[in-house]
Write a protein that binds this DNA or RNA. Structure first.
Lengths: 67, 67
DNA sequence: CGCGCATGTCAAGACAACCTGACAAATCGT
DNA sequence: ACGATTTGTCAGGTTGTCTTGACATGCGCG
């Protein structure tokens, strides 16, 4: 599962810790998703998309090019 | 996490087992998501949305009214 | 009635997604 | 150079997602 967290976060100048606070998870959880170690839960994926004002499909990519 | 699986499945006349086959999980996993016992993984959520030709946001609702 | 199919549910287990707490290394501002 | 922040990572533990296998129920069909 690819994601655009690092870019989206950089655009807003948010640290991993700040994003974690905003969506209600630990900074380690953000790091693990961002570096591809975990896939997020659906709940967390919704929270992350919402934090950036985007759709899940605009943040996460299940493969390479889908939509 | 609410979802429209039962309706979408009924529209296509698919059993839980058939949907499970289509997305690559057991029928019990489909049942558990459909009856609200589990939230699906993000990977499964993408697979389910894809099976219906919809976006995740059109199948799952994190609460009541979001987008 | 007897059969097949769909659904709901339980149990036991494997593994993934989270947590807290800690430590090291790179970067940034002053 | 120094201190503060950020990121990456590890350990150990809890909870959630999914698996197989099993059993009961309801429903339509012959």
């Amino acid at each position: 599962m690819k994601n655009r967290l690092r870019v989206l976060r950089a655009e807003r100048r948010w640290s991993q810790a700040e994003l974690g606070d905003r969506v209600g998870v630990s900074r380690q959880a953000i790091n693990a998703v961002e570096t591809g170690k975990h896939d997020p839960s659906l709940t967390l994926a919704f929270a992350l998309a919402d934090a950036f004002g985007l759709k899940i499909e605009d943040v996460f990519d299940p493969k390479g090019e889908g939509a």
